[in-house]
């Protein structure tokens, strides 16, 4: 592989993506109920995303803003491969490391260390690669000796810190972050931000979902605003955030 491959400019490409969720009120949870409620099912569909298209340049810091329920997290999950789009295409080029919600992707019964290996395996890293990164991960997370305790006994802060520590120490090519930084204390938040800056200068593409518009303005190169599943605008952070805020304070 000495041929220099043409470097893809877009790390994430979202083309005409729609996502529909199937919601069922009083969904039967047993065969017995299913038989009894036959023909009387209340199924609804919810479009979480509608015809969203956007491209995120490699090495850039992209922000997503919008109200609760606007589809930000759904879009992030689609990028992470957790959900499949109902229609459209999503292409993510490179190793995706996602930090969604608290304690992203930990198995409660396993110890912190075992979870680090399991997470690494899910991201396509070998045990040797994870063992090499282990010290950094433990140090950054600050969980100390508790690394060998099952994560179910961790405090929410420890959970979060270890999750973040894994996500950023696996040398991700694309890092997806959903609102989690707000959970840690001031000092940890600062360290997270510094670390994300470092990753980004190393070429990592970062997609951040946040309600903290000041943070989004400060960090992001480009911002997208989602409203009711539609991408209302994409572009310069200040412009997009301003429009979003005007819209947000308008009585609807």
């Amino acid at each position: 592989m000495n041929e220099p491959a043409p470097a893809p400019v877009q790390a994430v490409e979202v083309s005409d993506v729609s996502k529909r969720f199937r919601l069922e009120l009083n969904r039967p949870t047993s065969v017995k109920e299913a038989v009894l409620s036959f023909g009387r099912r209340d199924v609804r569909h919810l479009w979480a995303l509608r015809d969203v298209s956007l491209a995120i340049e490699k090495g850039s810091f992209f922000g997503l803003v919008g109200h609760n329920g606007s589809g930000k997290s759904t879009l992030l999950r689609l990028m992470a491969g957790i959900h499949r789009p109902t229609s459209g295409r999503i292409t993510a080029r490179g190793r995706v490391s996602a930090l969604l919600e608290l304690g992203s992707g930990f198995h409660p019964e396993l110890t912190g260390r075992e979870n680090v290996f399991l997470n690494g395996a899910m991201l396509g890293l070998s045990r040797r690669q994870m063992a090499a990164a282990m010290d950094d991960i433990i140090e950054f997370s600050g969980v100390g000796d508790q690394i060998d305790a099952p994560v179910k006994i961790y405090s929410s802060g420890m959970y979060m810190r270890l999750g973040f520590s894994v996500a950023v120490n696996v040398e991700p090519e694309i890092l997806l972050v959903d609102e989690v930084i707000a959970v840690g204390d001031e000092e940890f938040q600062q360290r997270c931000l510094q670390h994300m800056e470092r990753l980004r200068s190393g070429g990592t593409t970062i997609v951040l979902v946040s309600h903290d518009t000041a943070l989004v303005r400060e960090l992001c190169d480009r911002v997208g605003w989602l409203d009711g599943g539609h991408l209302r605008s994409v572009g310069d952070p200040d412009e997009v955030v301003d429009t979003y805020l005007v819209h947000a304070t308008e009585p609807s």
């Binding site: 592989m1 491959a5 470097a7 893809p8 689609l78 491969g81 499949r84 789009p85 459209g88 295409r89 999503i90 292409t91 993510a92 080029r93 490179g94 190793r95 995706v96 399991l118 395996a121 899910m122 396509g124 070998s126 045990r127 090519e173």
Partner: peptide, 25 residues
Amino acid sequence: MAVNHTDPSARPLRLSPAARTSARL
């Protein structure tokens, strides 16, 4: 599949990256 997680830097090895990931898991 609509989501393609391709790794441009992946070296050609005996097993595909996806198969190796599955084996590790």
